[in-house]
Computed example of a mutant assay.
Amino acid sequence: MSRHSRQSAVPTANLNVARRHYCDLDGFRAIAALAIVCMHVQVRGGYVHANQWLVDLVSPWGTFVTLFFIISGFGMCCGYYERVKNQTIDLAAFYTRRIMKILPFFALLVCIDVVSERFSGNSLWEAFADLTLVFNLMPDLDIQVIGVGWALGVIFLFYFLFPFFVYLMGNRRRAWCTFVISTVLSLSCVFHFFKADGHIDDRRFIYQAMFFVAGGLLYLYRDVIACMGRGGRITTLIVALAVVPLLYMDVPAWASNIKQLVLWIPWMVYAISGDHRMFDNRVMTFLSGISMEIYLSHLFIFQVVNMLGFTHLFASDTASYLVTMVFVVVGVILFATVAHKSIAKATVWITVHRTARQTVVSNENNKESAR
């Protein structure tokens, strides 16, 4: 389908709008994944003598993880909100699909990490918690085995609670009440429910829940957003560009999540309003398809690059960082693509053989019944 036909096909009817694929969000996923890679490589590589402008530019990019949460809230509603609300969904199939989307690749990385730690006691306990996918419920979230997986734990807990989330987002009034409550709960983590040492554990689902609710609210208003005219889209883009400097502004801890909402919501509205070539292209679509794999495996690939001695090839930290980024990005794309395809083929093979086995058993049972 051409770009023009996709855009002209955006109707005002809620049902058809719900079925639309929001191509710009593919671009946002890709950009968010690569931005987080850039930040982590700069921090883990210890490029302390890199040009200050580069350090200042990249350092706040960890914030992009909350964009993932908003997209997850919106995307899950696009796929399942109506079916859960109307009770036309098989919950067993829903949870199976969510688990199979996440667990195989994550389990592969966990196994690699445990082997690299030589099966130490700590790594085995943490690996077990990781593989349950509900490790965000653990009392201590200082998990070193696939440490970046904390965000995956937050997202899976959102999947786990999604039917209740749909109830909370049952109408716009209730959704706004839920948003206010989730915001207050997030603030409570700052002002009251913090660690004994005074630090805020921002890896907790309850601290990040407001972003998923924001995604759900955007879904409830998707038809209104999709009907914005050209002037509305241009105005939204201007606002989105105007708030970008917020990414580099220091704010008090209590205002951190609010700042991120102000930063990302205009971009989400712009994406929902229509498809734009900058974010809707083959490269973005491809990277979006493996964005989860890129996020989860980039530190593993960085460790490989580091062990090979490729992280400080030059006297200049700036040059070393840029070259390391190329190695890591290329490596993580290759690893993610190969692993993604291998897991997909293995899943198909297992499914085919399981179906064949069930068919044989069923035929044998039918023969026994006929006798």
Results as ranks from 00 to 15, higher is better:
82 E>A: 03
225 I>F: 13
55 V>T: 13
163 P>H: 10
285 T>N: 10
109 L>Q: 06
312 H>V: 02
1 M>H: 06
197 D>L: 06
63 T>N: 08
228 M>P: 03
365 N>V: 15
363 N>E: 03
365 N>W: 09
316 S>W: 12
258 I>Y: 09
24 D>F: 14
178 T>S: 10
292 M>C: 02
148 V>W: 07
342 S>D: 03
204 R>L: 13
371 R>I: 08
4 H>D: 11
281 N>K: 05
228 M>N: 02
63 T>L: 12
323 V>R: 03
87 Q>N: 14
76 M>Y: 10
204 R>Y: 10
142 D>A: 08
311 T>R: 10
172 R>Y: 10
75 G>T: 10
39 M>C: 11
81 Y>V: 01
30 A>S: 05
161 L>K: 11
56 D>L: 14
239 V>K: 10
325 M>R: 08
283 V>S: 02
279 F>I: 03
66 T>V: 15
288 S>L: 14
327 F>V: 05
178 T>M: 08
1 M>T: 12
139 P>R: 02
275 D>S: 07
236 T>G: 12
236 T>P: 04
162 F>G: 07
317 D>F: 07
54 L>E: 06
16 N>F: 08
316 S>P: 12
41 V>F: 07
272 I>H: 09
334 L>A: 10
126 E>Q: 02
317 D>T: 09
241 L>S: 08
161 L>G: 05
274 G>T: 01
271 A>L: 10
259 K>Q: 12
74 F>E: 04
329 V>Q: 01
275 D>Y: 12
81 Y>G: 06
128 F>K: 11
134 V>P: 01
158 F>M: 04
271 A>I: 14
279 F>V: 09
130 D>K: 01
248 Y>W: 15
250 D>T: 15
40 H>G: 07
313 L>F: 12
340 H>Y: 13
154 V>I: 14
294 I>S: 06
213 V>N: 00
344 A>W: 12
67 L>N: 02
54 L>M: 14
248 Y>T: 04
106 F>R: 09
313 L>M: 14
168 L>R: 11
